[in-house]
Design a binder for these strands. Structure first.
Lengths: 179, 179
DNA sequence: GTCTATAGTGGGATAGAC
DNA sequence: GTCTATCCCACTATAGAC
């Protein structure tokens, strides 16, 4: 797992091949299948590792004392830019929920749900943050775009809108497979 | 190009291979290289086709009479869900701007820039919309999430926030490589 | 000159026999 | 753990038909 994570983070998704992983481990590729059912199992395990990292990063941001939504957004962006390939793995394909530790998805989402006040707004905020980092990572913004200003604009809008909802406590309790 | 687009839209990105494209054209794969420099050129051409479609869909939505931001958002989502593989091709990798017709990127972005009122808010709105459709396409929202409600929540926030900016006309004129 | 083909390189995931 | 093999991929070299 450590070797796989290094391969992914250092050289990107195309570099994460069974052959190269085997090379790094001083073993032939087919031998990996004695330990892993296949590449998908490997990727599922990496998703769990990555989501665990996101979870702890966001939880810490929420505890930071600043405005929670702003702090969470900054931490989210920082994580994505620091681990672009892992972030893509985590967001460009279906979550392999069967392979995820019980409750991890909910734990990762909890800080944002609490900060946003209701699940719909939490999803909107998540979508905004994901859209910003994903388009940035994908090189889709024009090179001269002021992304900090776009973040401020979106966060101001999301923070300013009125809440429509039940108290945060109830929302968190009913949260299921978090986003 | 028509065959390639069919392959992509019907069977997804993994199905778009030089071999299968050649098969569909009744030709051997190496022959394709007499017409195309390589797969990347093919993908670049498909991106141009897709962006042209997005552009016309958004322009029509902006002319629809409804609230422009809402109409554009609905059209954007409709396009992405109707053409998921093309949408991914268009957003998960850098825009191949060298291969794009002059001005296409700006034309595609114009309706949203006009509706949002300033480029930062336009980018925030684009990020929100992209995040929503991309997470939906990627199967990252929990199965029971109310995505319509999340869209409403995000759009209400973005529409309600105050503008910080110069008149829309000037903004459009200074728009460069649109998003 | 413009189309096609065959043959081959090097890289992938993975199955099976040892 | 290995080796061998199957089948996929992008791409190249080369040559022949029209």
């Amino acid at each position: 797992m450590r070797a796989a994570l290094e391969l992914l983070e250092e050289d990107g998704a195309e570099a994460l091949t069974m052959r190269r992983l085997a090379d790094r481990l001083g073993v032939k590729a087919p031998s990996l299948y004695k330990h892993l059912a296949g590449k998908e199992e490997l990727e599922g395990a990496l998703m769990a590792v990555g989501l665990e990292q996101v979870s702890s990063v966001l939880a810490e941001a929420a505890r930071s004392g600043e405005d929670p939504l702003t702090a969470i957004a900054a931490a989210y962006r920082r994580f994505a830019l620091a681990h672009p390939h892992l972030y893509r793995l985590l967001t460009e394909r279906p979550l392999l929920r069967e392979r995820l530790p019980e409750g991890l998805e909910a734990r990762a989402a909890a800080p944002l749900v609490r900060a946003a006040g209701d699940p719909d707004r939490a999803r909107a905020a998540w979508a905004f943050a994901h859209g910003m980092v994903h388009l940035e990572l994908s090189g889709r913004f024009p090179p001269d775009a002021d992304l900090d200003a776009a973040w401020r604009s979106g966060l101001a809008a999301l923070a300013g809108a009125p809440t429509t909802t039940p108290p945060a406590r109830a929302v968190v309790r009913s949260w299921r497979g978090p986003d």
